[in-house]
Design a protein around this nucleic acid. Sequence first.
DNA 1: TTGTACGCGTTATCAA
DNA 2: TTGATAACGCGTACAA
Lengths: 341, 341
Amino acid sequence: MPEKARVVRPITLRDIAREAGVSINTASRALTGKPDVSDKTRRLVQAVADRLDYRPNQLARGLRQRKTATIGVVVADLANPFFAEVAEGIERTAAGEGYSIIVANTEENEERERRAVHTLVERQVDGILIAPTQSSDASIRYLLQRRIPVVLLARFFEHLQVPAVINDDREGARLAVRHLIQRGHRDILYLNGPPYNSSARLRLSGYQDALQEAGIPFRSSLVISTDARAAGGYAAIQQALAAGLPFTAVFCFSDYVSFGAIRALRQARLGIPKDVAVMGYDDIDLAGLVEPALSTVHIAKTRLGQVAARMLMGMMEPSGKQAERVGVTVLAPQLVIRESA
Amino acid sequence: MPEKARVVRPITLRDIAREAGVSINTASRALTGKPDVSDKTRRLVQAVADRLDYRPNQLARGLRQRKTATIGVVVADLANPFFAEVAEGIERTAAGEGYSIIVANTEENEERERRAVHTLVERQVDGILIAPTQSSDASIRYLLQRRIPVVLLARFFEHLQVPAVINDDREGARLAVRHLIQRGHRDILYLNGPPYNSSARLRLSGYQDALQEAGIPFRSSLVISTDARAAGGYAAIQQALAAGLPFTAVFCFSDYVSFGAIRALRQARLGIPKDVAVMGYDDIDLAGLVEPALSTVHIAKTRLGQVAARMLMGMMEPSGKQAERVGVTVLAPQLVIRESA
DNA sequence: TTGTACGCGTTATCAA
DNA sequence: TTGATAACGCGTACAA
């Protein structure tokens, strides 16, 4: 007959206290490094805790302290290298300060975002980092109203005063398109992201800025909205080619879109950059590894995550700044010229 | 003088109870869908809760129930598309069942893994999914000893009986190398991962299997260990070329390694697959988008995450299976022939 | 069907 | 310097 598995009850402060012959209170103070504990008892308690491998229950601690050392991270798509790198920057920074992160995916879905935010609130996270689906700002307003520290990632709302860490999208697009123009292109296709996305709007402005500087008239027919994925870039190029749109260069909303676009161009037997130049945006890891190496606009993704996390942790301190006083941090984009343009 | 910001105290069950004119207990039972509550009071309580936008404190609930509906996820590198996709599969599955995930990165560092596991234990996660750094099994043994449900991701320990969801690495490598042999290659370089990694060992076996089947003698000089990153693949090829190693094909531990290898081959003016055929492993998103499109071995990454999450959630149920009875799930790899080999 | 009392494990307050 | 006591917000016996 098999022995019944003995369920090991976790060691609590009470166990430590009993074993060390002190009160629970004293055990707590000793272990949390509070003053007003004699060195002798502190060492004793510490020794017992070590021996029993005591692990404080952070649930109980959080309940009591109204502070969980947890940050909620809400992104559109974890599998997207852009967000994955941002998340990595956040995780590293948070872990360094003793914070854990709860991660939720929205897939750009408003309802999933709503649920994710509620879940995080119920789990008493100390603050939230979120790349908002911008079809609605309800979740953000909800957090503001509940006075929960929040910092937006990579996107922002013009009409809402919320701290954010973003890339200078307008400038980045300007740099990219200016580069294409310098290489002699005048018919530049722009495969943009979805219009509700703040980056998409700003990059479109940057695209227009660069054209205007060069005295090239803007043609809305050369701007195609995509879903910002590779398939979108692929489809958009096919569509452009079929429609007989005249272009010698393509500026893409993201590196992913570029990869799709390049694939479609190749299938049409167009050489890159010989026949058509291509520029991406984001500078994901693989951009420099493919053939032709992708010319693109670099965003400091881990840095973005790191800065956002630091900003949030600052707001979460007892004496931390209020959201209204934090503002928006804008990261400078950087042009990366490789082979595709 | 600025008005002092009134901190809005969160709504608790007590507030609901008072407002609805019932006891806290009744409020709780009404909201958690327990029986023994009249429809009338249930509706009343529910209405009050909705009106006040009540959010149950999951810390308190978890403390009381000894169950947090939280899964700890420990991976080597979130920014690696492989783990990012696995994580996505986990998140989706978990969220669908009301679970949240706390994510930690180890960067293959044993010490970070140790800390991550302790943190998760202290936060009372109901179970842990982990891609173990395999330089040590201490963290895994710790979890087993504490009887915390754990499922390994993509890697496993021969000497430890721990549930795991893995890819059939040996078979995958066999398929890849067999394919190269069928294309007429006999001098096949293998850029392997680090030797402590279980996948690296198994894929090496698969490589040897395929050679043996074809009666090709194994030469250890054709196996180079890399750090499984693009830079590693790049360096390994340079080294192989410099050493004058004879090879007409390269099998790589991962797609990332392939990209690095391809870059180095190109710089040496070698055509792919004309002069050298290249096969990867993983089939990350971008493998099919680059030029030449990468031939590789497909791993169902989101599926791996999904299966692992389901397995873990099964073990976490009160009547759930014990770890010893769960076993290892092996996912079948799939050969994907594109252009590079 | 409803309410009272207690405990989950911790920290904070206050008195000794 | 230490200890008793009361929370934190919720769920669960048990009694009404």
